[in-house]
Design a protein around this nucleic acid. Sequence first.
DNA 1: ATGACCGACCATGTCGGA
Length: 272
Amino acid sequence: MRLAVATWNINSVRLRIRQVARLLSRHAPDLLCLQETKCPDERFPRAEFEQLGYPHIALHGQKGWHGVAVVSKHPFADVARHRFCDYNDARHVAVTLERAAGLAKALTLHNFYVPAGGDEPDPETNVKFAHKLAFLDELASYPATRAAKAGSHALLVGDLNVAPLEHDVWSHRQLLDVVSHTPIECEKLRHAQRAGGWRDVMRAFVPEPAKLYTWWSYRAPDWKKADKGRRLDHIWASPALAGAATKMTIARETRSWQQPSDHVPVIATFEI
DNA sequence: ATGACCGACCATGTCGGA
């Protein structure tokens, strides 16, 4: 079967529900993972997703900020939410699709919103950066987020808030001291990827040294002209599933829509 | 300076994003 999975930091799901609908009608992924829903679970726009053909919804939200969600055409056999770093700050939700969904194997999907980390890349003076580093360490050691589990497929997607490779940013040299591309974050993210046995699906389609971005600052007067982007959003897959990937799309067009999110969707398709 | 912004909230400024 064909399975398409999308991830998008929507920066308020209530504000941009029409844009989500437009993306779903245009790309029709089987599952959509959202970050920064900024929405308590009881105010999540469920009815809109049901109408769009996504009646299966897993939420981990809270009032005002952060928050993640998975909406799906297929039912979930299980939903899990993990509190990283002992904070209850709505940064993770996982769903499992059973073989009943048409899959030869069960599939577990983790959806993450990794802490941004504040301005100053010093864990001694910036508690937000210390939190981000601790979160990445926990991601590397958390057994549930290991890809290599016999007999099942796994995906780890989301806004990981790190652009780990040299060509994941517009200027490697100029961003070495900028949170999201400092060497310690990049190393910790790459370590988590290795430790979990994950494959980078996006870079399998667009290897370095090609530039690859999913985020452009709101502050640039003309984001497309400046093109000072970063690859903060990621799709990782377990090895067998990565080998079954047939397509990867960065839906850049959404960045030009009216009142856009500063992140754009990433969509991966698998033939399994 | 990449940066001239953007969203939620018991709002009219503050916090967080990155």
